[in-house]
Amino acid sequence: MKHIKSLLIAGLILMGLNVSAQNQTDMRLNEYLVENTNDFQDDFGQQNAWFELFNTSYGTVNIGGCYLSNDINNLQKYIIPKGDVLTAIKPRQHVLFWADEQPFRGTFHVNFTLAESDTIYFVSSDGRTIIDRIAVRKDIEPNVSVGRSQDGVGSNDGKGEGWQIMPNTSPSTNNAGVDAKSKSSIMAEQDPYGVLIAITAMSVVFLALIILYFVFKFTGRLAIRNQQTRSDIATEGKIETVKAEENTGEAIAAISTALYLYAVDNEAHDEESFQITMRHTDRSYSPWSSKIYTLRQAPQVKKN
């Protein structure tokens, strides 16, 4: 039994480790631009093709050690350097890579271009698992990007479900997705007087507590029935109906006080734990703590 427990705990820990290692799977290719003649510039003042990754999760994901590629036969074409603090992508944030074939320019410059690419692959740090891929469209006009209509939403199998030609390029920022406006500002437009939210929220509060009401009404009935059955068994079938006298509030209060005082005085509990607690004795000497009785007898050395 002990072994099974240990295995179970070890399994759960391993599952936990597995989950944390898979945070990279929350990353998505989010937008790309193939021909950049008059769009975003990099730190070197150059206009090159770019593509964007988006962290769909609500935790920071470090993509250091992951790979980017445009070749299915060489998924490890570009390794995103480890140890760069900028590769830790904050929740729901974007990171931009320049496809300029000039990796010596920094972490975010890959060693391939989009003009020569049919598909972009984002590959896990194991170098094998493709986390996301997107087929690159070449039939797009210069300075027009292709992206997900909502950040991170859509397929990751390269078929382009959820992708569209973007009305405006949006490198390193939202693709007009759900995060573009705060919930509060959406609510201000939809429900300026707070009536809808009040009705909805009160309905939910009532719903939650009504469900609890029904559940505990039901369990209460079960408990009463169970109690009745036990009582019947205790009387061995000889059920005597005793008409209880009308209890007054004072009587109940007096009984409760008496029981409480009894419990306090005797340190009684609602439910006995059937455990004995051995407390340290205040006396300095006791046969239980005496070294004389607990130590082995000292060997006697006889001197002749």
């Binding site: 009040a198 009532f206 009401y213």
Partner: peptide, 17 residues
């Protein structure tokens, strides 16, 4: 023991809204 009292706790939340 008296779960219908739960509903009073719900009603008082009108103050919030």
């Amino acid at each position: 023991s008296n779960p219908k009292l739960l509903l009073i706790g719900a009603a008082a939340q009108f103050g919030i809204f």
